[in-house]
Each structure stands twice: as structure tokens, then as C-alpha cells.
Design a protein around this nucleic acid. Sequence first.
DNA 1: TGTTTAGTTAGCCACATGGATAACTATCTT
DNA 2: AAGATAGTTATCCATGTGGCTAACTAAACA
Lengths: 112, 112
Amino acid sequence: MDNYLDSFFGAISDPTRRAVIERLVHGPAPVSELHAPHDIALPSFLKHLKVLEAAGLVRSIKVGRVRTVHLEAAPLAKAEHWLERQRRIWEGRTDRLAALAEALERQDKPKG
Amino acid sequence: MDNYLDSFFGAISDPTRRAVIERLVHGPAPVSELHAPHDIALPSFLKHLKVLEAAGLVRSIKVGRVRTVHLEAAPLAKAEHWLERQRRIWEGRTDRLAALAEALERQDKPKG
DNA sequence: TGTTTAGTTAGCCACATGGATAACTATCTT
DNA sequence: AAGATAGTTATCCATGTGGCTAACTAAACA
């Protein structure tokens, strides 16, 4: 589960790869079409696709000589949930400012 | 905006750093307390804190000799929104299976 | 004042990452 | 069969990342 989020967040921390995701939410596309808007060599681009596929964010099928790539939505949702969970806990702390003040206070008199 | 998500997602793609976040949603804490559960040297751990701070996920104040670190919630929310937006678009495509079939179909007869 | 404590800075290292080119396979198209 | 198209594989390179130790500064304590 830990490893899962590692590779997921790692995958979407790159602008090229996020752009691919942003394209794929609208529907599947062949490699060459995905590659077109990016000003990098095809092999470099293929590496990005492999990162996405390794992270489980994307899958692909090759028919004839073209490989069609499509999004796998579940991972997106899971990551969103991790963020949501953290936010919820954070929002639950209505005493945030108090907590900070308290923490700083604790520093002044570590002996209690 | 692009760069922003880069550093944010990069920051939370590491398990040590996610653990720090998971701790900080419960309230601020000094460096040494954050470091304690992690089996790595302090300087290595400090690098992680710097990554989090550079990504704007965290801020810190030093009082006396102890530095207290606290979470900055806004970035969490923004990242969550990016994911949410993608999911929404994806979910909007009720014709997903049709789209895939169509994409594969297009491969069979590229000439139209 | 001397000693701990909390954090910081500097420098080193191995490995991962994102880019490139060259050369190749496989599948259409003509 | 020849040529174009779509992708793949291999190899290389610079830079970034995550870890380490050693040595340091600046508070608090005793």
C-alpha cells in the first residue's frame, strides 16, 4: 500500500505524464497521438508511458502496429482518497492555532 | 501551476515524507519528534523536511534551539482538486467502453 | 563554565531519472 | 517487393535523489 502510493505519486509528479493523463481522461489514444504534442523523442516518451503503466495508471493493447493506451481510473481515486483523508483529519482539528501556540509554548518551558 | 504540482506530487511520492505529513495533520511538532520514528540519520531526514518545505507543504519556526514544523493545508487541497477534476472528466464519459471499441476500430480501418 | 541537546552544514557515494541517438522489428500501403 | 509507418530495444549521458559520516553552531542545563 505504501509502495503503491510511491509509484502513483511519482508517476504524476512529472508534467509530461500528467499531460498524458489529462489527455486520456477524454478517451483512449494510440501512442503516436499521445506523443505528438510533446517535444521529446519517441523513445524518451515511451519511458514515460512505461512509468505510467508500471504505476497501474494506464493500460494498453497493441493491435496490428498501433498500441492503444487507456486510463485505469481506480488508482486516481485511491490517491485522491489519501489526500482527502489527510485533509479531513486536518480539518477536524478546529484547535489548530491553539495547537501551534501550545507547541511553541512547550518549547519555552520544556521542563513543564 | 505546472511546476507547482510537480514539486507537490514529487514531495508526497516518498514514504518518509508522506509519513511526516500523516503526523503533521494531527498538529505541529519539533524536528526531533518528527525524526524519531524514522530509521535514517538526522541530516538525511532534514533533507526530506526541506523538500516538503520547498513544495510549500510545510512551514517551520525556530524558537530557541528547537524548530517547530507545521502543515500548510492549501497545497493538499489543490492537489486533491487536480485529481478530482480528472476523475470528474473521466466519469463524465459514460461512453467509455464505446470509446475504447471505437479507438480499436479506428485501427482496423485507418483509411476510414 | 563545561556538557548536553537540537539542529545545521559540508562533502561523499550509489543509483534512479529524463533526455538523446542509432538501429531494429513488424505491419500496412503501393 | 519496396517503402513508409508505428513502435521497440539498446546504449549513452548529465543531473537529481536519498542515503551516509564528520564537524560545526547555538541553546539549555548542571
